[in-house]
């Protein structure tokens, strides 16, 4: 853990509409070593509602890491990314784009909107699990995250 005073689980927000992919990600995180709490938002609007702690989400802490898919119903991933990085309270949270698209224009657009990194979901399960583990390892152990959001 980055912060020696924080002893709760690492909060991760997964914004993904495909339940199959959600479950896969959860299973992949289970194989990792880090004590975490994975919350899921099924679309862009729900994601922003959670982040802004609206309504039912008022008690939830802010996530330490956001995994964001680009293909979302209602608000798409780029709009959510833009909203997060524009918001004073939210812009420090690292956003990892985790999506199926490998298209050049999507990558460029994501970085333009200040995504912290862009990952294309591999087709093979083993590779996917390896990548999730590297995300964990990199963003949650190697990297220093901003304290006290």
């Amino acid at each position: 853990m980055n912060d020696p005073y924080k002893c709760g689980p690492v909060e991760i927000l997964l914004v993904e509409d495909n339940p199959g992919d959600v479950r896969l990600t959860m299973e992949a995180f289970k194989e990792g070593k880090i004590y975490h709490n994975l919350r899921v938002a099924g679309d862009g609007e729900e994601a922003l509602a959670q982040l802004r702690r609206e309504g039912a989400h008022a008690e939830h802490p802010l996530p330490d890491l956001i995994l964001l898919d680009l293909n979302l119903p209602k608000k798409n991933g780029s709009e959510v990314l833009h909203a997060i990085k524009r918001d004073e309270a939210l812009k420090r949270i690292p956003v990892v784009i985790l999506t199926t698209s490998a298209a050049e224009q999507d990558v460029v657009k994501a970085y333009d909107l200040h995504a912290n990194c862009y990952i294309t979901k591999p087709v093979d399960l083993d590779q996917f699990i390896t990548i999730i583990k590297s995300i964990e390892s990199f963003w949650l152990t190697v990297v220093k995250l901003p304290v006290g959001i």
């Binding site: 199959g20 896969l24 299973e27 199926t100 979901k121 087709v123 093979d124 399960l125 083993d126 996917f128």
Partner: peptide
Amino acid sequence: RMVSSYVKL
């Protein structure tokens, strides 16, 4: 991807 991943899972 779903078929392949879940069978492997």
